[in-house]
């Protein structure tokens, strides 16, 4: 059974149709890229999939729950990480873990044991009581991702997870993502950095509220006779020429 399935999912704001009858599904353990230009409808679609916005028509299930009827159940089973903002800079590493554990309803003994595991896995036991602001960017990013996995969500939404970090940290980060996917977590990556898209198993491209393309990066490059995903994006975006 797909972890995410939408059927003609639509959202309008007055006369404007932000998301126009999108139908797609994402399997368990998949790394799925959700791409599109600014204003293409990505954010609106994601808000519906995370239970933050009700659809106008159509339907969607996330981790087996209906986003319209059971948004709270959906929220409990998803994680979210953004490279730009996920952790509280003024809190220590340990405090951040405890805060997120608490928000997701974990009990204190569970938080304690998970904290120990997490610190050991990332090799940051020494830094546990340092403020997050003092950590290098690459570490923050790995910590943010680990925190998003704390409550063992079925799906983690990643928003431009690796923009701005150095190439080595970026590759190490993708390895963490691969590891999570191999253990059965589904990853939904939103980005407009096409080099991030190259790492996904499949990508969808939204243009003007619709999904204009959905396939593996390899197939898309063949289909659009493009050398890289940047070129695929440019060819697709030109179709729905953005009037802003």
């Amino acid at each position: 059974m797909p972890v995410i399935a939408t059927d003609k999912l639509t959202r309008t704001f007055g006369a404007f149709t932000a998301v126009n009858a999108i139908t797609f599904s994402v399997e368990q353990g998949e790394i799925f890229g959700f791409l599109g230009a600014n204003g293409a409808g990505k954010t609106t679609a994601l808000k519906m999939l995370t239970g933050l916005l009700t659809p106008t028509s159509g339907s969607a299930t996330v981790a087996g729950f209906d986003v319209w009827k059971q948004p709270e159940q959906v929220k409990r089973r998803i994680g979210y990480m953004s490279q730009k903002f996920s952790l509280y800079e003024d809190l220590t590493v340990r405090e951040n873990i405890r805060l997120y554990g608490g928000i997701y309803g974990l009990k204190m003994p569970e938080i304690r044991s998970k904290t120990a595991d997490l610190l050991q896995k990332l090799g940051i036991e020494q830094e546990a009581d340092q403020r997050v602001s003092a950590l290098p960017l690459g570490w923050k990013q790995k910590l943010a991702f680990s925190v998003a996995l704390l409550h063992e969500p079925k799906i983690v939404f990643l928003d431009e997870p690796t923009s701005g970090v150095d190439p080595l940290a970026r590759r190490q980060f993708w390895e963490l993502i691969y590891e999570a996917a191999a253990s059965g977590v589904t990853l939904m990556v939103t980005t407009h950095y096409m080099e991030e898209a190259e790492y996904c198993n499949r990508v969808s491209m939204m243009v003007d509220g619709k999904i204009e393309a959905l396939d593996t990066p390899r197939e898309l490059k063949t289909q659009f006779e493009a050398n890289d995903m940047d070129e695929v994006f440019r060819k697709l975006a030109r179709k729905g020429l953005v009037v802003e």
């Binding site: 080595l168 993708w174 390895e175 691969y178 191999a182 190259e198 990066p217």
Partner: peptide, 24 residues
């Protein structure tokens, strides 16, 4: 087909200096 395991395995390949994810 299995990217995560692939990277781990390639690091154990004799003569491997370095292995990292890089797009597909």
């Amino acid at each position: 087909d299995e990217m995560y395991r692939l990277i781990q395995d390639l690091r154990s390949f004799e003569g491997a200096a370095d292995c990292h994810a890089f797009g597909e």
